[in-house]
Design a protein around this nucleic acid. Structure first.
Lengths: 145, 145
DNA sequence: TTAATTTCAGATAAATTACTCTTAATTAAA
DNA sequence: TTTAATTAAGAGTAATTTATCTGAAATTAA
């Protein structure tokens, strides 16, 4: 089981942060992303395409084609990516799986969960992908200067 | 998509807290749990059975049979339930889906995620099911005195 | 112009998760 | 002792998610 985000969404987040670290103007191919991030090629293709359709990425066909972040890059957040892939449910779903869950009608974990989720989404909303990409210390993301 | 916990696990949590609210000594049938919590009967049966096998629940066959929490009830936590159903992965998996993710090798959300997860599991480990059940204000859980 | 490289599109397959069905075993009440 | 109610067990089905395959369309470089 994938946790919190679907596998698709995890891949999307990894790829978007990779694009955030590549020099602006350069297009990155699915091939490179797939190889570097170890994500199934055609599966990743679908994901990137859908992010392009939803306006988060730019895509170009042809020999020098590939994907890049839509501009202005500073306006893109991971919250948008999550929303585009997994939808908005996570932002209000009950962690115990109850249909209704609210302040008036709380499950045993409601308060704790709302508090923690809010903290996470504060970061996801308030920092753009460039800022977040900087906090990623993984080797694969380093050599993109 | 279910978030954080699998559907199975959500059902398990709901059922365990229901049992935590029923008077001690009384067995609760799958039928009652299934109806009150709106969980598919046979699916729930499997889940409860596996929790019984793993030692979290007591089960009794026959006309007055059903399920109850293993005693001593005070020693049962939701963290144990989660572990029994979804396994321990959630306690160390990377929220962005990277294989390795640590303080030395963090993804962009590592610190935030560790903070969230720790906060949640502090509650899940430190409060027993009786204490947590008390915080559940849902109508279905009320009339069990 | 041609060949190479890329995304786009749609179909399909594999894997996982969720759920159902049926029968047997057990127990207590009638 | 019979009957009704319950869990146990295993097989089977459905739905969803993840992944693969193939070919077309676009674009650039040779």
């Amino acid at each position: 089981m994938s946790l919190l985000f679907s596998r698709q969404c995890e891949y999307a987040l990894q790829a978007v942060l990779y694009l955030a670290k590549t020099p602006s103007g350069k297009m990155t191919s699915i091939k490179e992303l797939s190889a570097k991030l170890d994500i199934p090629y055609h599966y990743l293709a679908k994901i990137l395409q859908s992010l392009a359709i939803k306006g988060l990425l730019l895509s170009e066909k042809g020999r020098t084609g590939g994907f890049a972040l839509r501009i202005p890059v500073e306006h893109i957040t991971l919250a948008q990516v999550i929303d585009a892939v997994d939808g908005p449910a996570i932002k209000h779903s009950c962690v115990m799986g109850f249909g209704e869950c609210s302040e008036d009608n709380p499950c045993a974990l409601h308060n704790e969960w709302v508090h923690l989720r809010t903290g996470l989404f504060d970061v996801l909303n308030d920092k753009n992908v460039i800022q977040l990409a900087r906090e990623m210390k993984k080797p694969v993301y380093e050599m993109l200067a």
